[in-house]
Amino acid sequence: MTYGDTTVVDDLSLSVAPGQVTCLLGPSGCGKSTTLRMIAGVERQTSGELWVDGTLICGDDFRILPEDRPIGLMFQDFALFPHLTVAQNVAFGIKVSKAEARDRVQKLLARVGMDGFADTYPHQLSGGEQQRVALARAIAPRPKIMLMDEPFSGLDNRLRDGIRDETLSVLKEEGTAVLLVTHEPDEAMRMADEIALMRDGKIVQRGAPYNIYNAPVDKAAAAFFSDINVIQGVSHGALTETPFGQFLTPGLGDGQAVEIIIRPQHLRIDFDRQGKGPNPTPQEGVPAKGTVKRARFMGRESLIEFEMAFDGSVLTATVPAVFLPKEGTVLWLTMRRDRCFVFAA
């Protein structure tokens, strides 16, 4: 998809299975919402094809209008019609007899816990109630695909998790293929069966949440899901020397700059070794000495920043519960090699 000389979505190929939630995840401006608009028919792709259940809905010389596509839409603002009642909102777009539509509306409102609000108007509802009505309206025509553009971002944290889980439960029961857009990694991890990580209009990695988190394709992918520590090195003979010992770096030529990535929760404070000096272990390698710069309690964990003795760089570790060492405290750190990611710099 291009606008003038600017390519917004580039060579994107994606499929979503019935009853599966696929999440388009990425920073603002990476092309997520444009992808949804192309699928919905609001924007027409510059080239390529869109298929639904084996039927071509849009190609270079053919296009089914948005209102005729078997696709449902849910957006941030719910987009309910203010002059229609809840029942009338849900019935909008159902192309069956009045009796069948009435029965479908009653069943859907009961399913989303809004069966007592049929004659209520949207302005009389809370945000969470409006979300439930928007869901009922979106699935009423039995779409094969549901497109969701950050539909929960307008809800406060107390409501969000419950309504989000209820929404996905209903969609899965309906057997609807769901394509969800978000820029929040936590939301994607919680909701998705599969994540497609986007950057600069391309899908750079795709897989189950566990796999994409634990096997990032590059440093930027690792950093998108959590804070990271970066240790610099240079590869020689498929080995890179670091203050934490040698790391295997196969496939990298001599003199190649290397970045070793480890998340703060996998950087371990070795309390048993204090005052005993370095003592390498096969799994954790050589311990390295650091001096506490700052310690903060974050609720579920404590975050400690260390100035490392070997080069003055700053590494961050997290410890469950409360651990607040004083500034200037010297501690030894180790890092598990099976929790590190090695990339060419």
Rank of each mutant, 00 (worst) to 15 (best):
D5E: 14
D5C: 10
D5M: 12
D5W: 06
T7M: 07
L12D: 06
L12G: 04
S13T: 14
L14C: 07
S15M: 08
S15D: 12
V16I: 15
P18A: 04
G19F: 05
G19Q: 08
Q20I: 05
T22C: 13
C23E: 12
C23I: 12
L25E: 12
L25G: 08
P27I: 05
P27F: 14
S28Q: 07
S28H: 09
G29Y: 07
C30E: 01
K32Q: 12
T34P: 10
T35M: 12
L36V: 10
M38F: 11
I39N: 00
I39C: 04
A40G: 14
G41W: 02
V42S: 03
Q45D: 10
Q45N: 11
T46A: 15
G48R: 02
V52K: 07
G54R: 08
G54N: 04
C58S: 14
C58L: 01
G59H: 06
G59L: 12
D61N: 14
R63S: 11
I64P: 02
I64L: 14
L65S: 10
P66E: 00
D68C: 04
P70E: 15
I71C: 12
I71F: 05
G72V: 05
G72W: 00
G72H: 00
L73Y: 03
M74W: 01
F75M: 14
A79N: 10
A79V: 11
A79M: 07
L80K: 05
L84D: 07
V86Q: 03
V86R: 02
Q88N: 13
Q88G: 09
N89L: 09
A91S: 13
K95I: 12
V96W: 12
K98P: 00
A99W: 11
E100S: 09
R104A: 13
Q106R: 15
Q106K: 15
K107W: 13
L108K: 00
L108G: 03
L108R: 04
R111A: 10
M114H: 00
M114D: 02
D115A: 15
D115M: 09
G116D: 13
F117D: 00
A118I: 08
D119F: 04
T120C: 10
Y121N: 04
P122K: 01
Q124K: 11
Q124W: 03
G127R: 10
V133C: 05
A134D: 00
A136D: 03
R137P: 01
A138R: 01
P141G: 05
R142S: 13
P143D: 03
K144D: 03
L147P: 01
